[in-house]
């Protein structure tokens, strides 16, 4: 393959991967953030305990998280087709990626919010704060560093999953690695593709950690 051709393919692959990862993570948070908040407040020591609701959410999330991504990918193909119109390609891959991301994100949000000091929540109640104020201005704001670390982990995990989606023609770098590297034994392309994935992961990790440190006021200035 010509260099120019390969360069074009890799650029497009990188773009496709970023598109899938970013959109799925965003959608994952749209579903996972409220779920994580619900898990936190309905737990026994939460601000609005509700054992039944907690248990239901808990089970749903555990079940979804137990399904291996590759199986999930195939399992929800009819659903994907119903939503996007087809079951292969970059946009279609966003559906299973989001389904995999949401429960993972919900769990990470839950664990971040649960780190918030109970005393601070009590203080907010004593000031006459309502549930909504406590959720946004105490729980979410106080745990923002930890939440951002969670975003970094989520992006990394989804990046890994997106590469797996190449198996069923998901598009992106994973797809290239499998089609050229695995099926056609073009080891060179496979190595380059993997290298690009590694670099992407490094950048995500580095930027996430830098940002979360920057917004943390607990370590002074």
């Amino acid at each position: 393959m010509e260099f120019k051709e390969m360069f074009f393919m890799l650029t497009k692959g990188t773009w496709d991967t970023l598109y899938m990862v970013l959109i799925s993570t965003l959608l994952g948070y749209i579903i996972g953030l409220p779920l994580g908040i619900l898990l936190t407040i309905t737990d026994v020591d939460g601000i609005r305990p509700n054992p039944v609701l907690y248990k239901i959410l808990d089970v749903i999330i555990n079940v979804t998280r137990s399904i291996p991504f590759l199986i999930l990918l195939i399992l929800i193909m009819p659903f994907t087709k119903a939503v996007v119109g087809k079951s292969y390609g970059t946009t279609a891959t966003i559906v299973p990626l989001t389904v995999a991301a949401a429960p993972l994100i919900a769990r990470m949000v839950e664990s971040s919010l649960k780190e918030v000091d109970k005393g601070v929540i009590e203080a907010a109640f004593s000031m006459g704060a309502g549930y909504f104020t406590i959720i946004w201005k105490v729980l979410v704001t106080e745990s923002r560093t930890s939440l951002l670390v969670g975003v970094t982990i989520a992006l990394g995990t989804i990046l890994g999953y997106s590469a797996m989606a190449g198996v069923i023609g998901g598009g992106g770098l994973g797809d290239i690695a499998i089609r050229y590297g695995y099926y056609r034994y073009e080891t060179g392309i496979m190595i380059i593709t993997v290298a690009v994935l590694v670099i992407l992961m490094q950048i995500l990790q580095w930027a996430g950690m830098l940002l979360s440190k920057k917004i943390d006021r607990r370590r002074g200035k």
Partner: peptide, 19 residues
């Protein structure tokens, strides 16, 4: 909630918002 605004409270561990 309105009534609680008239009843301030301070704590052993201060309970300030750290962020």
């Amino acid at each position: 909630r309105l009534m609680r605004r008239e009843i301030g409270m301070i704590f052993q561990h201060f309970n300030l918002l750290m962020q």
